[in-house]
Design a protein around this nucleic acid. Structure first.
Lengths: 130, 130, 130, 130
DNA sequence: GTGGTCTAGACCACG
DNA sequence: GTGGTCTAGACCACA
């Protein structure tokens, strides 16, 4: 999997990496159980500080996306089952509340919005992860 | 219009205000041409510094949501017509890319996602709002 | 002469009026010796505070564009001869320095710039003002 | 690049800085991709508050003149391509409308005006500036 | 009264 | 180290 970082973006680098990894899991370009590069390896590949990668892996582990295995290697959680808890639903509602309001006011119809969402969902695959 | 600020949130106060104002325009609780409180008034109401409100109003003005009618203060742009330019579409695509991926992995089906979006869109009213 | 004020402009109202009067003199829509409306009359016409108009007239008088005649009426200076002093030249240089730099960077060629200037100059008339 | 600030000017400090930076880009004394001092560094150099510099950089970024390369600070946009949109043309027309009218009335001939403009344009260099 | 500018100092997020 | 956010208080321009 190849990560694309935009250093001039207003989105923090650690978030760009984290988002791309989660998207990678959803689209299947990262498979459950697949190893991720070591912290120093990935940092060196991208050309960033290894503390930044560390932050990503730490958050991903805390949220259950990855697990640490032998000698501090990291892999996508083979038994991935992140929660759809109330906190998440609340934050999703909040995000969509803001996003849809602006989209509506900017002339993005509900149908156009649906179309974008559908396009993305079409790219996600259900792996053998019961 | 009543603003609800969470001071412990990790979302900056100025962004919370900005988002709520944009949502207010979409839902019609703020009508086109309606006056907003003065920076100092709103700051005092919420209990924050007026510079924070000033930042909100400045950004809203630069993006075309409000106009400052010299002296009489700030009002919702009566001829609101913010653009659906390529930059915005790109950012919308990017946001939805991340949001849908995580939603999918957390078990939010496309239908459930649609349902949330639809619920919000149902609350938005067309410009012809008297 | 009809004044057009934009209350939402970032240019102060008094400056908009002042500029339009000076442009009016240059284009001939205001003739030398022509009477201007009284402070209260103009303020009432435009729908602004008469202090604002007062400020305009005061500045115009100080700079020599208008003269006060009988019972505080104001008219365009019949012997208009504003100075091309070094201060003015310096300020003109400074303005054009900024304006041309941005124009250049935004892709306005020297020829296009000349064209705009020429268009405006073509609208100015030399009155009998020796 | 050396900034020259006049503290007694009626032009706000932040605007003086902003104008000089844009002129610097046009004249080539600031090259595309060149780093600008940090907000605190520049503020300290000039002897002003860092918030004032921050305001300059924020506006320059919003208008596309500079980019903030995360962590390494602010640099002149290496792919500078600010737009010549209708809004800008309108504001340019308006500025020149006022400036040429006053210049004409103060005895600055069209030729003299052209001469000033030409002098400035002669100092600007094309993008291919290594 | 309004918003705009500037100063001063604090804390945080990021890398 | 960098920029971003927030607070606090001052003065000014405008209407």
């Amino acid at each position: 999997m190849l990560l694309q970082i935009e250093f001039e973006s207003d989105i923090p680098i650690y978030l760009q990496i984290k988002n791309q990894i989660i998207r990678g899991i959803a689209t299947g370009s990262l498979r459950l159980g697949e190893d991720l590069p070591s912290v120093r390896q990935l940092a060196s590949d991208i050309g960033i500080n290894f503390h930044t990668v560390n932050k990503v892996y730490t958050q991903l582990r805390q949220e259950g996306w990855v697990v640490v295995h032998r000698k501090s290697g990291v892999m996508i959680n083979p038994e991935l089952k992140v929660e759809k808890n109330t906190d998440y639903i609340a934050s999703l509602e909040d995000s969509l509340s803001n996003i849809t309001a602006e989209a509506f006011l900017r002339g993005v119809t509900k149908e156009a919005f649906f179309h974008i969402v559908e396009k993305h969902y079409a790219g996600y695959i259900k792996e053998g992860r019961e």
